[in-house]
Nucleic acid binder design. Structure first.
Length: 858
RNA sequence: GCCCGGGUGGCGGAACAGGUAGACGCAAGGGACUUAAAAUCCCUCGAUCGCAAGAUCGUGCCGGUUCGAUCCCGGCCCCGGGCACCA
C-alpha cells in the first residue's frame, strides 16, 4: 500500500466508482424501507459558499449512514433559480438573468460533485424550467377556482425617483438603495394565497411535529399568533349613514376604561376624516413615508393626531375621541384599537404623551393603584372590575363573558379568535420569476389562462435595467387574446414570490419527469421527507409556506400526507473574521481574512504590510469579503478534510467559526488514520478475534465497541457529528498506543481499524473507500452494513466511582461492577481523603448514584 | 419594538435525564529525530497558593431551589437569527 495519503487521487477514484455504478440512483422499492433525506436547495449565486458545504455535508452524512443501515435512500438536488440577485447581476453585467443563472448552475454542480455528495443527479431540475413552474401556475389556478387565491390591494415600498417597487432588502435606512430617495408606501393590487384558512391546522399540527426543534415550533406558533378576544364595534354616523368602527381586543374586560380609539393611517375612516381635516391629512401623508417592514413600524416613535371626530362607546354611549396612530397596524385585527391607558402599556405611553385621560377599571386586592405606575398593572388578569358599572367585582373571564354577551345582544360585538398570520401576498413586480397565469381583458376583466395553454412561458432574453419590470415592456409577451371573448388582451406581468417555487420542489423530486401531473404515484412512496436540513433563517416563512402548500395539495387529492417534513435539522451559520481598513474619507474597505496576519488587540496586517482593524465575527458574505472558496480548499486539502473539519468544529445547530488551522488539523487526523492502516496491512494477515481476551487487548476491544455504540447514537439520534468524530479520534489514539504482540492482538487492532473506517465512512467517504479496500475487502464500503456493538465486549469488571463530601470531589474508588449499594458506600467511607474531610463530623446522609458517584453529607 | 436562540480555558468545543467542569481538536511552550527545515513523535497547558500531597476559586452578571447547578427557577447584561418583497 502506498504510504502517502494523496486526497486528489483517492477522491477522484472513489467518485469515479460511485459514478460508474450509479451508486446513488434510486428507484421505488416497496420491499425496502425508504429514507428521504433532503437539504434545502441552493440559490445559484455563482459559487458554492461554506454554508452550502456545511448543509450538504450534514445531509450526506445522514444519507450515507441510513444507506449503510440498509435503507433505500433518496438524496436529490435542484436549484432555486428565480430571484432578485440574477436581476442585479444582469444590471451590472448586461447579461440576461437566465444565462447568468444557468452558467452558475453548471459551475456549482461541478463543485457539489467534487465534494462527493451521494446525490441522485437524475432527478435534478431548476425552478426556472418551464416544466417545473408550469405546475406553480396550474396549482395557482386551481386555488383561484376554489377561492384559495384572491386579489386585494397590499402595501409595497415605492421608490419615487425610479418609479419602481423595492424589496425590503433594497430599502436602506428608509431610502431606495439606488436613488437614495426616501421610500414611500404604496397600495397596489396583488394576488394572495389564503393561508389563514389553514391557520388552525398549521398551529394544531405543530404539536405532532416532534421531530422538529422546539424553538422552530415555538417561532411558528408565535408567528401564527392565535389570540382569543373579542371584536367590538364603536358606532358613529358619517355622511348621514350609521356606521361601526370595529376593533379587536384581547381585554374586553377593560372596555369600560376606554378613553380613546386609535386607527391606522391607512384605515378607511382615517382616509375619510383626512378629507375634511388638514391636520389629519398631513399626518396620514407623513405616515406614508418609510418602508413597510414590521420592524421599522414597531421601532418608530409612537405618534398620533386627534381627528376631532368621536364614536360612541358601545356600552355607555359616551363619545370617545378617534385618533390616528402610527403604531396601529392595518394588517392586524381590524386596523383599529381601543385605548385603555389605565391597563395597557402602549396605550398608557400614548395617553401620557398626548395628555389623554387615564382611568382605573381593574383592582387587585391588597395593591394600591397608581396611574403613574401603570407598568405594574399591564397585562394583569388577576384583578376584578371596578368603576365599571354593572361589571364591578367580576374577574377577567366573567367580565369578558358578560361584556361579550351584552355586545352581542346589541349587535356591537362578539367573541372572536384572531390570528397574527396574514394571507400570503405572492405578486412581485419583477421579471425573473414564474409568470402569474392571468390575462387582463377590457371586457372580461381578469381571466385565468386555460389549463391547455400552460405553461405561460417567461421570455429568457430580457435584461432588466433598474427601471421597473422589463416584462411589462415586452409586447411579445404582454399582447395576447382574451381566452373568453377572443378580443385583444394583456397578460399579467407580475411574477410569483420565489417562496412559491420552494414550497413544493421536494415533491417534484419524486416524479421529476412527470409531464401529465404535478406529482404521480411515486410521491406516495417517497413522501414525507424523513429528514430535512437547512438554515435556521428559514424557520418561519419557507417552512410554513411548505406546510401550507402540502395541505392544499392534500385537499386537492394530489397527496396523502398532512405534513411534508417528519424531522427537521436547522443548521447554524458559518462565520469568519471580518477585517477592514479606512481610507482618508473614512470609507471602509474589507479585506479577506486569509491574507491577514493578526497582531493582537484587534489589529493586523495585510500581505503588503498595511494595517487593518478587526471587525469581529460575522456571517461569511460577499459584502464583508470574508468568504472562503470551497473549491480552493478542496484543491489544497481534499474534500474529505473540508467535510471532516466542517462536521467536527461545532454541532450542526450552532454557528461554526471558520479556521484554516482547523482544516489542517483535519488533514493531520486523516493522515494518521491512513498511516495506521498502512502500517497494519504491512504485517501478517490477522485471524478472528478470540473470545478470551484480557488486559490491554480486552480494553481496546471494549473501547472499539463502546465507540460503535456512541457513534451510532451521535449520528443516528443526536446529530452531534462533532462528538462522533471525537470518539473515533480517541479510538485511533488508543490503537496507536497499543503495541500488538500476538496474532490475537493483531486481530483486535484489525477490528478497531475496520470499525473506525466504517464509522467514518459517512463523514469522509473517499478515504474510507480506499482504506476499506486496502484492508482486503472487495465490496465497496458504501454497501457494507453499519456495525453494531457486541454487548459481551462492552462488559466491565471494575468501575471507578467518584466520592464527594458535601458535594465536593474528594476521592475516587474502584469497585466491582456488581457491587451493591452497601459495599460501594463502605468503600467510599474507607477512603483516606474522604475520612480527612469528614473529620469526625456526623455523617447525616449518604447519596449513592449507582455506577457513578457517592456523596457523603456531614 | 416583538418572537426565538446563544454566552464554558488563549481559541472551536465536551459534559446526552441535576451527579468527576474542560473529552476531542486548534494555538502556544518545551523536548526527540534531522546538517537544517518541513513532516512526525513525546511532554506541559483554566486561575491562585503549595516542594509535594493537595487546597481555594472558576461555566456572562445578581439572587434562589437542591446533598449536589454549565444544566432548573426569578431578575439583568451582551451577542446572533426572524419580523411577511434577500434567499
Amino acid at each position: 500500500m502506498d504510504s502517502n495519503y494523496e486526497p486528489a487521487v483517492i477522491e477522484a477514484e472513489a467518485q469515479a466508482c460511485w459514478n460508474d455504478t450509479e451508486a446513488f440512483s434510486v428507484r421505488e422499492d416497496g420491499g425496502r424501507e425508504k429514507y428521504y433525506c433532503l437539504c434545502m436547495l441552493p440559490y445559484p449565486s455563482g459559487k458554492l459558499h461554506m454554508g452550502h458545504v456545511r448543509n450538504y455535508t450534514i445531509g450526506d452524512v445522514i444519507a450515507r449512514y441510513h444507506r449503510m443501515r440498509g435503507r433505500n435512500v433518496l438524496q436529490p438536488m435542484a436549484w432555486d433559480a428565480f430571484g432578485l440577485p440574477a436581476e442585479n447581476a444582469a444590471m451590472q453585467n448586461g447579461v440576461p438573468p437566465g444565462r447568468w443563472t444557468r452558467d452558475n448552475i453548471d459551475y456549482m454542480r461541478g463543485q457539489l460533485k467534487s465534494l462527493g455528495f451521494g446525490i441522485d443527479w437524475s432527478r435534478e431540475f431548476a425552478t426556472c424550467d418551464p416544466g417545473y413552474y408550469r405546475w406553480n401556475q396550474w396549482l395557482f389556478l386551481k386555488m383561484l377556482e376554489k377561492g384559495l387565491v384572491y386579489q386585494k390591494t397590499g402595501l409595497v415600498n415605492w421608490d419615487p425617483v425610479d418609479q419602481t417597487v423595492l424589496a425590503n432588502e433594497q430599502v436602506i435606512d428608509g431610502r431606495g438603495w439606488r436613488t437614495g430617495a426616501p421610500v414611500e408606501k404604496r397600495e397596489i393590487p396583488m394576488y394572495y394565497m389564503r393561508i389563514t384558512a389553514y391557520a388552525d391546522e398549521l398551529l394544531a399540527a405543530l404539536d405532532e411535529l416532534d421531530g422538529w426543534p422546539e424553538r422552530v415550533r415555538a417561532m411558528q406558533a408565535n408567528w401564527i399568533g392565535r389570540s382569543e378576544g373579542a371584536r367590538v364595534a364603536f358606532p358613529y354616523t358619517m355622511d348621514g349613514r350609521n356606521e361601526k368602527l370595529w376593533v379587536f381586543t384581547t381585554r374586553a374586560d377593560t372596555l369600560m376604561g376606554v378613553t380613546f380609539v386609535a386607527i391606522a393611517a391607512e384605515h378607511p375612516l382615517a382616509l375619510r376624516l383626512g378629507e375634511d381635516n388638514p391636520e389629519a391629512a398631513a399626518f396620514i401623508e407623513k405616515c406614508r413615508t418609510g418602508g413597510v417592514t414590521e420592524a421599522e413600524v414597531a421601532t418608530r416613535e409612537k405618534e398620533g393626531v386627534p381627528t376631532g371626530f368621536h364614536v360612541e362607546h358601545p356600552i355607555t354611549g359616551e363619545p370617545v375621541p378617534v385618533w390616528i396612530g402610527n403604531y396601529v397596524l392595518m394588517s392586524y385585527g381590524e386596523g383599529a384599537v381601543m385605548g385603555v391607558p389605565g391597563h395597557d402599556e402602549r396605550d398608557a405611553e400614548f395617553a401620557h404623551k398626548y395628555s389623554l385621560p387615564i382611568g382605573q377599571v381593574l383592582a387587585v386586592e391588597g395593591e394600591r393603584y397608581d396611574a403613574s405606575h401603570w407598568q405594574d398593572w399591564y397585562g394583569s388578569k388577576d384583578g376584578v372590575c371596578v368603576n365599571s358599572g354593572k361589571y364591578d367585582g367580576l374577574g377577567f373571564a366573567a367580565a369578558t363573558d358578560a361584556i361579550a354577551a351584552d355586545l352581542e345582544a346589541k349587535h356591537l360585538g362578539e367573541k372572536r379568535i384572531q390570528y397574527r398570520l396574514r394571507d400570503w401576498g405572492i405578486s412581485r413586480q419583477r421579471y425573473w420569476g414564474c409568470p402569474i397565469p392571468i390575462i387582463h381583458c377590457e371586457k372580461c376583466g381578469a381571466v385565468p389562462v386555460p389549463e391547455d395553454q400552460l405553461p405561460v412561458t417567461l421570455p429568457e432574453d430580457l435584461t432588466p435595467d433598474g427601471g421597473g419590470n422589463p416584462l411589462a415592456r415586452c409586447e411579445a409577451f404582454v399582447k395576447c387574446e382574451c381566452p373568453r371573448c377572443g378580443g385583444p388582451a394583456r397578460r399579467e406581468t407580475d411574477t410569483m414570490d420565489t417562496f412559491v417555487d420552494s414550497s413544493w420542489y421536494y415533491m417534484r423530486y419524486t416524479s421529476p419527469d412527470s409531464s401529465a401531473s404535478m406529482v404521480d404515484a411515486r410521491a406516495d412512496y417517497w413522501l414525507p421527507v424523513d429528514q430535512y436540513i437547512g438554515g435556521i433563517e428559514h424557520a418561519i416563512l419557507h417552512l410554513l409556506y411548505s406546510r401550507f402548500w402540502t395541505k392544499v395539495m392534500r385537499d386537492f387529492g394530489l397527496l396523502k400526507i398532512d405534513e411534508p417534513f417528519t424531522n427537521l435539522l436547522t443548521q447554524g451559520m458559518v462565520l469568519n473574521q471580518i477585517w477592514f481598513s479606512r481610507d482618508g474619507d473614512g470609507r471602509i474597505t474589507y479585506h479577506n481574512p486569509a491574507g491577514i496576519t493578526a497582531e493582537g488587540d484587534g489589529v493586523g496586517r495585510t500581505a503588503d504590510g498595511a494595517a487593518v482593524e478587526f471587525g469581529g465575527l460575522g456571517k461569511m458574505s460577499k459584502s464583508k469579503n470574508n468568504g472562503v472558496d470551497p473549491g480552493e480548499l478542496i484543491e489544497r486539502h481534499g474534500a474529505d478534510a473540508v467535510r471532516l473539519f466542517t462536521m467536527f468544529a461545532a454541532p450542526p445547530e450552532q454557528t461554526l467559526e471558520w479556521s484554516e488551522a482547523g482544516v489542517e488539523g483535519a488533514v493531520r487526523f486523516l493522515r494518521r488514520l491512513y498511516r495506521a492502516v498502512a502500517e497494519h496491512v504491512e504485517g501478517e494477515p490477522a485471524e478472528r478475534v478470540p473470545a478470551d481476551l484480557d488486559g490491554a487487548a480486552r480494553e481496546l476491544r471494549r473501547q472499539t465497541h463502546a465507540t460503535i455504540a456512541k457513534v451510532d447514537d451521535d449520528i443516528g439520534r443526536r446529530y452531534t457529528f462533532n462528538t462522533a468524530i471525537a470518539a473515533v479520534m480517541e479510538l485511533l489514539n488508543a490503537v496507536n498506543r497499543f503495541a500488538p504482540e500476538t496474532t490475537a492482538d493483531r486481530a483486535v487492532v484489525q477490528e478497531s481499524l475496520e470499525t473506525a473506517i466504517m464509522l467514518l465512512a459517512p463523514i469522509v467517504p473517499h478515504i474510507c473507500h480506499r482504506l476499506w479496500r486496502e484492508m482486503g475487502h472487495a465490496e465497496p464500503i458504501i454497501d457494507v452494513a453499519w456495525p453494531t456493538a457486541d454487548p459481551a465486549a462492552l462488559k466491565r469488571d471494575e468501575l471507578e466511582i467518584v466520592v464527594q463530601v458535601n458535594g465536593k470531589l474528594r476521592g475516587r474508588i474502584a469497585v466491582d461492577a456488581g457491587a451493591n449499594r452497601e459495599a460501594v458506600e463502605n468503600a467510599a467511607l474507607a477512603d483516606d481523603n474522604v475520612q480527612r474531610f469528614i473529620g469526625g463530623k456526623a455523617v447525616r446522609r449518604v447519596i449513592v448514584v449507582p455506577g457513578k458517584l457517592v456523596n457523603v453529607v456531614v
